[in-house]
């Protein structure tokens, strides 16, 4: 039995355009994601993380290897719609994902394309708006909303397909801190309460720290993989991949370098405060 997302030894090269700086390709990437997991994919620009994301619902097809979504091969054209309804995709720019002039109608877009009866569309629209906490904005025009609100509508629009996997390609990159919080709390809720498998592409460490598993990509390959605690404790490796660990880890790591032996895997403020409190109060 395959994992719900199974990228098996995939490679990809972008068609060469002479002058254009081509985005990173993928080289023999092997990633499995289990049902109900929340996985964050980190990496700097050009690490191949977005290219990977685009393979998960057949926007791109691997030139070597294969991607299976719920056992469906993404290369099989006849499965395209089934794969895309199983694996929803949210993009970076919320403005460029909304189709209709009214929030309600926009969320209805995907179920309309699925040819569902109007009562079922209505049920899904109501349920999805409720899930992302945007019910009171149902009659608004998208361009009157804030970035975080627009992105939550985009998420609702994808949820309306009732997918089991949600792939998000840097959904918070264009948002301010409050917008980021709104979106992240919606994502956590979906994963924890609705059991939706989440693949979050991001360059924000604090978002990755909320995941169950972190995959760090670099130059089209998987460079590091593990729980957030495991990954972020490898401070030297993280830094060599031009990423920054959370400040709590950075602080403990520097103390460690000064010869005070301290555990590094303290990602949250309260965990780190516990460790430092014990450290400072200890009589050596």
């Amino acid at each position: 039995m395959r994992s719900i997302v199974s990228a098996e030894d995939i490679s990809y090269t972008y068609p060469q355009d002479e002058n254009q700086a081509s985005p990173a390709a993928l080289e023999h990437v092997d990633i499995k994601i289990e049902k109900g997991e929340f996985v964050a994919v980190l990496g700097h620009n050009g690490s191949g993380k977005s290219t990977f994301a685009k393979h998960l619902n057949a926007i791109l097809l691997p030139s070597g290897g294969a991607v299976y979504i719920d056992n469906m091969d993404t290369r099989d054209q006849s499965l395209l719609l089934a794969i895309r309804s199983r694996c929803g995709m949210v993009f970076q720019n919320p403005d460029n994902q909304l189709v209709a002039t009214v929030v309600d109608e926009d969320v209805a877009f995907a179920p309309e394309n699925m040819g569902l009866p109007p009562e079922e569309i209505r049920r899904r629209v109501d349920a999805c708006l409720e899930t992302v906490g945007m019910t009171e904005y149902r009659d608004r025009a998208p361009h009157m909303l804030s970035g975080g609100q627009k992105q939550r509508i985009a998420i609702a629009g994808v949820l309306a397909m009732e997918p089991s996997i949600l792939v998000m390609d840097e959904p918070t990159a264009m948002l301010d801190p409050s917008g980021r919080r709104e979106v992240m709390s919606a994502v956590l809720k979906l994963n924890r309460e609705k059991g939706i498998t989440v693949v979050l592409i991001t360059h924000h460490m604090d978002e990755a720290a909320m995941a169950q598993r972190v995959i760090v990509m670099s130059r089209g390959k998987v460079a590091l993989e593990g729980t957030p605690k495991e990954v972020f404790s490898k401070v030297d490796e993280i830094k060599s991949l031009s990423l920054l660990p959370p400040q709590t880890v950075e602080l403990l790591w520097r103390l460690d370098k000064k010869g005070y032996s301290l555990p590094l895997d303290r990602l949250s403020v309260s965990e780190c405060a516990d460790t430092l409190e014990a450290f400072l109060k200890a009589k050596d």
Binding site: R84, G88, A110, N113, G115, R122, V125, M161
Partner: peptide, 16 residues
């Protein structure tokens, strides 16, 4: 984004 939301022309499309 529209393709990812299963848009494939007007055929078989219903309305809210």
């Amino acid at each position: 984004a529209m393709e990812c939301r299963l848009y494939h022309g007007g055929e078989g499309r219903t309305r809210l």
